[in-house]
Amino acid sequence: MFYLDKEKLGLPGKQEPQLQAADSEVPDWPSRFKVLHQHAKDKRLQAFYDAGVVAGDTPLAETPLLAVDFETTGFNPRKNSIVSIGLVPMTLKRIRCHAAKHWIVKPLSGLSQESVVIHGITHSEIQHAPDLSQVIDELLQAFAGHVMVVHHRGIERPFLNEALKARLGEGIEFPVIDTMELEARLHRQKRLSWWQRFLGRQPLSIRLADSRNRYHLPWYRPHDALTDALATGELLQAQVAHRFTPETPINDLWK
């Protein structure tokens, strides 16, 4: 999850990161994986695509899920790097902490002072951390066969795509359920009317902590990739409990 103050990053002062329009198309993931499998050159990527993905009409309850969170040095996948990765496998019923994974990796770009403060990851930890290339095997094995669960798909997918391009010469695609987007469906359906703006109404925050709060989930200390992955997984369970059913097809949710 990315928490840095936008102003500190010199980004336009938007409330939340925006998604690119192209991202809103939902591919037919099983056939997309077949194509990607044929084109992939790296053995590990081939194996990842070969593991396939569930069919679009699979009920949520039967879909293997993996909650994922990256801590990054900034917002731009081309300029900034991944600092840490948290993964927790889950189903709708149970999030399994025992199979969780947590890595700190050495970013290609330097670590800014702000990132040190925010993530609590220090320069010395980074110095002794491996490069992402050393965890790719394990990472892709954990990803294989799962639908990823993230809060704001503008981070995890593009950052991993760029990181792999830089290291393997080819990127990666995979289906995600974006818990932030599920919140946006509810709270960003239409813009506030001029009257609401006149009254000074703010749109409801769809950030992770605020979204969790709406479902009466407890407050977790942010900025730890593993905790944020867990927090995202719990949010999905809550969203489904309140707004969907275990029988809802994965097609309705994934991107």
Binding site: M90, K93, R94, I95, R96, C97, H98, A100, Y215, L217, L230, G233, E234, Q237, A238, A241, H242
Partner: peptide
């Protein structure tokens, strides 16, 4: 102990 914990959400009345 914490590393073996599993987590689940139940909505009111469930």
């Amino acid at each position: 102990t914490a590393s073996h914990v599993e987590v689940g959400y139940f909505k009111e009345g469930e």
